[in-house]
């Protein structure tokens, strides 16, 4: 009983399919182009000298070691501060809060935080932190803490929800107080959510520039972590911006872009791996 489609329907069918394929092709081509272009332009510029030295005006040499270290420091500092805050907030929401109003207010606030553009964070970070402690990596890290708080909160909350109720009941049934139950039974169960949150945050920190420009500055000095956090410094992304926009050093900029691209791929891969494991555990 197969009836041929009317002409109008046939055109619709063909047109829609063509448009879809076009769109998918465009998206795929775009990603491929960006990937190949950045890698091809960037990789030849990545030399050991670039990675292992700092820039010197005397010799006209550019090195991104300080930027790599700064990125590392700011990632560490941000995570160290944001983890307890975000995990604590998530624990409050899932384990302690009994007032539904407070829960929805907190969740709404987290939603607002994740929608605020980074340039505004940069501005507020400047007012709140840099104006008080000077332009330094720590001021940048504190700004990033606020930006990443919702991420850590959300992923932790999601994994807390997968900790079976029966574990909590079992512990309460033995006379354990709430804090002991949280510490011994609930917290170990949310490790994967915390890890997912960390990976996502690292990705976000690596890619961040607007929020750091006015809070962490753009110096290129090699420091230890304590000294580094107390002094101004550019992360890789900020350095890329400065080299490309202000100094026209496109070779270095592409080298950094290629490094960032590879890191992004690694982070995305890590996220999906963790989430797959997570899903398996849940089922």
């Amino acid at each position: 009983m197969k009836q041929p489609l009317s002409k109008k329907r046939k055109i619709y069918e063909v047109l829609m399919k063509a448009l879809m394929l076009l769109a998918v092709g465009l998206t795929a081509a775009l990603v491929l182009f960006l990937l190949v272009y950045v890698i091809v332009k960037g990789v030849p510029n990545i030399t050991w000298e670039l990675l292992s030295t700092k820039p010197s005006y005397l010799t006209g040499r550019i090195g991104i070691l300080p930027d790599i270290l700064n990125t590392l420091y700011i990632v560490i500092a941000t995570l160290v501060i944001v983890l307890p805050l975000g995990v604590g907030a998530a624990i409050y929401l899932t384990e302690y809060a009994s007032n539904q109003r407070i829960v929805s207010i907190i969740e709404y606030a987290a939603e607002i935080l994740s929608g605020i553009p980074s340039i505004i964070y940069g501005l507020v970070g400047m007012l709140l932190f840099s104006n008080n402690m000077g332009t330094c990596l720590m001021a940048g890290a504190l700004t990033l803490v606020i930006m990443n708080l919702p991420t850590i909160m959300r992923t932790t909350q999601e994994s807390l929800k997968t900790v079976p109720r029966s574990y909590r009941e079992g512990a309460f049934g033995l006379g354990a107080g709430k804090w002991r139950v949280v510490r011994t039974v609930v917290l170990p169960g949310c490790v994967d959510g915390v890890i997912t949150g960390c990976i996502l945050s690292v990705g976000r920190i690596l890619g961040e520039s607007a929020a750091l420009l006015f809070t962490a500055g753009f110096a290129h000095a090699v420091n230890g972590i304590i000294e580094g956090l107390a002094s101004p410094g550019a992360t890789l992304t900020v350095a890329l911006y400065v080299y490309a926009k202000e100094q026209g050093e496109f070779g270095v900029a592409f080298a950094i872009a290629a490094i960032l691209m590879v890191l992004t791929i690694l982070i995305n891969f890590a996220t999906t791996t963790v989430q797959k494991k997570f899903a398996k555990k849940r089922s």
């Binding site: 574990y167 049934g173 006379g175 011994t184």
Partner: peptide
């Protein structure tokens, strides 16, 4: 906490930690 120490509980589904 002390009450539940005196009056313990075993649940429907085994729930070891």
């Amino acid at each position: 906490s002390n009450l539940r120490k005196e009056i313990g509980m075993v649940f429907q589904n085994p729930n070891p930690f």
